[in-house]
Design a protein around this nucleic acid. Structure first.
Lengths: 216, 216
DNA sequence: TAGATTGTTAATCGATTAACAATC
DNA sequence: TAGATTGTTAATCGATTAACAATC
């Protein structure tokens, strides 16, 4: 299986489809779904659903639709979620702690969320050694060892803006290729590294544009 | 000023530009910037920078560039950030609390982040009446009054997945038109309402796709 | 004036949608 | 078989980039 150069726009929708299939697998006894229905539930047009899936293979049956359990499993394979993957989190402030709890809840609730939170990191020596939800906080110096030991593949950055680039660099040097960044800064990374960014302030400032201006 | 039908792709980049200009205004004595430099700092091509800005007016001088303070101010006007705007937050769990702190820090640090956190809401009666960072938690029943009193224009949802749609509906009924959703569900809203979504699990599942598969 | 950079138009690129033959 | 829905190709739509005349 080598699917080169598939657009990120496509990849972004796959977890959306997977979520719909997960819900369907739990809540109902529906075992078949059409691109039409899947599209409605995911908020995507039916043609686009079919085209997205077609990049990876032929998963449906003409005249019938897609078998829920089967398609779900294929999506998990495509997204690398079949085996458990280890995730690290740096910056155990109030946001970091909240993300730890949020993550653990997702991990427990959702079978397809095969991402185990394996290590925490913080620069503050007074935090190092203490635990959050049973996970011990390591220092930034321990990044190389921990990443290697736990085979950490993805890192969540919940550090302050000032420290974000430095901490990112440390993980990149340790071999991490995927970063989910919560700090309000643009990270500069080699293009072998994928960054996803979650930025409250950018989102809010964008929403402000859509606030209706008072009629005058 | 009536700029109809400007693409959301454009709007998403404006806060990025604004952030660069804010940094420039604070850190250095640079008072002019070219689309080239602004583009590099924002991670956007120079032609696109010029085209984005051109939707709203002529802000530069040929042969010279853009005046930092002036452009910054124009962007604030465009994004509705000139006057302070009131924001509400629902769901004061650990994520909600963390977002409160995060928000207040941004509000203090950044002049252009003119979004004041004006009210908190929670469904848990044992939380109602207590305060976080000096802001009192109201019940969901108080949404209509609070929204009207404080003129809340944007709401951050940090409630569990199950409650998200219901809480969203309450705010929409109270007249809120912009929602920033942290719950892992697709919200169904009238198309007069703008939703921005932040979804840790979708982002992580997407990143998992990019994790290099072990050579075998 | 000469050099630089904008604002804008035209060309390119990519992503979504429509349509339909294949087929379950 | 008749009806339905896929997989796929062609058409459309929109966004980005390249190019350049206008002009500071």
């Amino acid at each position: 299986m080598r699917w080169n150069k598939i657009s990120d726009a496509v990849i972004r929708r796959l977890p959306l489809y997977l979520r719909v299939l997960d819900d369907l697998a739990n809540e109902t006894d529906v075992s078949l779904i059409s691109s039409q229905e899947l599209g409605v539930k995911a908020g995507v047009g039916p043609a686009l659903v079919r085209k997205d899936l077609a990049w990876f293979g032929e998963f449906g049956k003409q005249g019938v639709g897609y078998e829920v359990g089967f398609l779900r499993n294929e999506l998990r394979k495509i997204l690398n979620l079949e085996q458990e993957m280890a995730v690290g989190l740096a910056g155990v402030g109030s946001l970091g702690e909240a993300l730890v709890r949020y993550h653990l809840k997702r991990y427990d609730d959702n079978d397809s969320f095969n991402l185990r939170l394996a290590a925490l990191f913080d620069s503050d020596p007074t935090k190092v050694g203490s635990t959050v939800e049973g996970i011990t906080i390591a220092s930034l110096e321990e990044i190389p060892q921990k990443v290697a030991e736990e085979q950490i593949q993805i890192v969540i950055l919940a550090v302050p803006a000032e420290g974000a680039q430095d901490v990112a660099n440390r993980f990149i040097r340790a071999g991490v290729k995927c970063i989910l960044n919560y700090a309000p800064v643009k990270l500069h990374v080699p293009d072998t590294v994928q960054v996803a960014s979650v930025d409250l302030s950018l989102e809010l400032q964008r929403l402000a544009y859509y606030v209706p201006k008072p009629a005058n």
